[in-house]
Structures are given as C-alpha cells and as structure tokens.
Design a protein around this nucleic acid. Structure first.
Lengths: 103, 103
DNA sequence: ACTTTAGTTAGCTGTCATGCTAAATAACAA
DNA sequence: TTGTTATTTAGCATGACAGCTAACTAAAGT
C-alpha cells in the first residue's frame, strides 16, 4: 500500500529535519562535503569524539533520511553525500516565499 | 562574558534546527505564515490536536530559537513569525554551495 | 585455519523531550 | 470582589535518543 504524494513529502521533511537536528550529524554532512563528497566509515569516525558505534548510528540515521548513501566495497563502507537531498529543506523553506493569504 | 562569533553562529544553528525538528513546530510556523505572520496563542492552539499547555511549550521553543517572537497585549499574547531568522538555515545550506577542497 | 581490520548490531543506561492534567497568574468584566 | 477568559508554569509519566562497552559479522592477509 503506497502513501499519497503529500504523505510522502511530509515523511521526507520529517526524516530530513530529524536527521539535521543533531549537531554531529550536521557536522558529518559538512565533513563529507569538504572532503569531496565521499568517505569510508572509519575516516569519518576518526574525526569525531564519540565512539565508533555511536558515529555508526548517526550515519544510519543520515542514510535513512536519504541525505547520505552507502556502498559496501570490500570490508569498507563508503558513505556518499546526496547533496540534492538537501532540496527537501529548500522546498520547505520555499513555503515562506509564497505570499500568505491576506487577512 | 560573551561568546565568539563562531560560537554564537553555532548556537544559532543548533537552536534553529532543534526547533525545526518537531513537526508540530514546523507546522506552527507555516500556520503563522499563511495567516499573515501573527496570531494569538489561543488561535494557534485551537488548530492543533495537542493540549494547550503542550502547544504553549512548543511556542516557547520557537521563541527561544528566535524564529518567533511574542508580545503581550492585554491578556493575550501575540506570536509573530520572524521570517528573517530562517536565514540561519539558508546560511547553513550555503556551505554546500561552496566548492569543497579538491583532493 | 587463524588473525587482523573494518564496521555494525545488541543491550544497557542516563538524560531529555513530549504529552498530559491540575494549579497558578494576570487581565478584564460584572 | 468575584468570576471569567487567556495563557503559562508545575509536576509527573512515558518514550525516544545518544552515549557507552561488548559481542558479532565479514572481508583480507598470513
């Protein structure tokens, strides 16, 4: 059973904003971006204070939000930034450009 | 003792993304926008399922993030959308437009 | 086969957010 | 002053989340 378009959009917004609500996750996205868009889990984790499993879970949240994707390569996992996915945020902000109904 | 600019920026991003992480709060902002930018607490609350105190707390979070401000008028409180504050999000997104360091 | 390397999953814990109801405040109306 | 309306604060219960360590999986090296 598939969701309506509106419901899907809402779920996207939910997932993306939820992922962005944690400083570590926002930071991961920036690190990914400034390192060229892709890195292995290990190279990401070594840049953060928290334990590796904790970072791993943050990455999972990011993947589930669609902001990042993973590809397994040998025993490594390569995380890749999906820049286009940030459009979810831009689209949401776009509502505030539309002129409100007048009183 | 004042925070450095960078620390203030970081705190702003934190507060704003945190405020935006809850669907109800995002919804409040949209309602405010489409109703012309300002509403009393009561008129906001009546549009939401959750109890009035719960909405009230959401409003508080929004105010603390700077996305909304309040003004007391008689026994009512008027909540006002601060559209410019959404620039915090835009600025953050702006990082991803900057070209990453090349490898 | 055994070890090392890369990374995730499981399970636990403490903290914090969210929801509720009931009580408090504060302005206005009678 | 008593009551009513508007709204917040207090206090509590529940649940989600983030952190940790330990255990697990899976690929690669020896």
């Amino acid at each position: 059973m598939s969701l309506s378009r509106a419901a899907r959009d809402l779920a996207d917004v939910e997932a993306v904003f939820d992922a962005l609500s944690h400083e570590t996750r926002r930071h991961v996205l920036l690190v990914l971006h400034f390192r060229g868009g892709e890195m292995t889990a290990g190279r990401i984790a070594e840049r953060f204070e928290c334990s590796w499993p904790t970072t791993s879970r943050h990455l999972k949240v990011l993947v589930e939000s669609g902001l990042v994707s993973v590809e397994k390569q040998g025993r490594e996992r390569i995380y890749r930034l999906n820049r286009e996915r940030l459009a979810v945020v831009e689209r949401w902000l776009g509502w505030f450009e539309r002129s409100p109904a007048r009183p």
